Computed example of a mutant assay.
Amino acid sequence: MAESVTRKGLDPQGRIEREGSLGRVPRAFRPVVASARDRLLGTFGARLHSAYLYGSIPRGTARVGRSDLDLLVALREEPTDADRAGARALGEAVDREFPQIDGVGTLLYGRARLLSAAETYDMGWFVACLCTPLLGEDLAEHLPRYRPGSRLARETNGDLALLLPRWRRRIAEAADTEAARRPLVRFMSRHLVRTGFTLVMPRWNGWTSDLTEMAEAFGAYYPGRAEQMRVAAARGREPAGDAAVLRSYVDDLGPWLAGEYARVHGVKGQDLDLDLDLH
């Protein structure tokens, strides 16, 4: 245990270890995973290249009745509208069948896109380090081994400035109720905490998906914003649909974080030298 904590999610060579495994799936969620696996095969058939779990269920930290099932599906071709409709129907069916989950989210990508140069530091890294193989050939075999460097930080979360206008529109268009705002608070809180963490990730020199650890790592380098990030981490776990919270995210914490990110790491998509381990 002490050794894994010291390495902070890295292997002995300083590369990010893959988090999660099927062996860590809590017993209560194993029937959910089995049902999703079978439904994926029935929904996509020969178009399916591979499928993955990610999030709290394969990390072993899922909470019954609170956690959702997160899936990533790689198709042999780019997904179609029919594929997206099939994924939605699959998620709705699994969500209805199993009360221990609170929703199903499915990301759909074509195999070629996930392995493209443009996605190497974004969705490629996501598959290689944050996804647990469930079906098919593991695309991680075709991807690099990653270190927690500046380019990884930039390509995973260096687009916050572009997202903020969309967030403002989503807030404006949401119904003026606590229930309608709650998922926005949850989503934006988690995104800001993860962005804050990846801002400091190269200096912290490690990886974690735990929101509390992310906020604490960030706070060690930005004490003036530490409490904001700790509160955001708490809201990411237990959100309340407070309109003032959403305004603070898009008017204060978000713009500051986007500016600091650009200053430290640059803007996503910049053509800078690679800092991954290709061996």
Rank of each mutant, 00 (worst) to 15 (best):
T106I: 13
L192K: 04
G20Y: 03
R203E: 13
L115S: 05
L253M: 03
E227R: 08
D273N: 07
R30T: 01
F218M: 09
T132F: 04
F29E: 01
P223R: 01
E77V: 08
Q13K: 12
L53R: 00
G9K: 01
E260F: 05
Y261R: 02
S209F: 09
A161H: 02
A180G: 06
V64H: 00
L22F: 03
G124S: 00
V185Q: 01
E119C: 04
R111F: 03
R59Y: 07
E77Q: 12
I16W: 04
V32P: 12
M123S: 06
D159V: 06
S116P: 11
L272T: 14
D11V: 01
V32Y: 03
D176Y: 04
R147G: 15
E17R: 14
E227S: 04
A243L: 15
L75D: 01
A36H: 12
P79C: 01
A215M: 05
L211Q: 03
V250W: 11
F126C: 03
D138C: 08
R96A: 11
S21K: 00
D83I: 12
D11H: 01
G45Y: 10
L90Y: 14
A172N: 01
A220P: 11
T198P: 04
E227N: 08
G9A: 06
G91E: 09
R113T: 15
S56F: 11
T43C: 07
R47G: 06
E178Q: 14
S50C: 04
E78R: 09
A87Q: 03
S150Y: 01
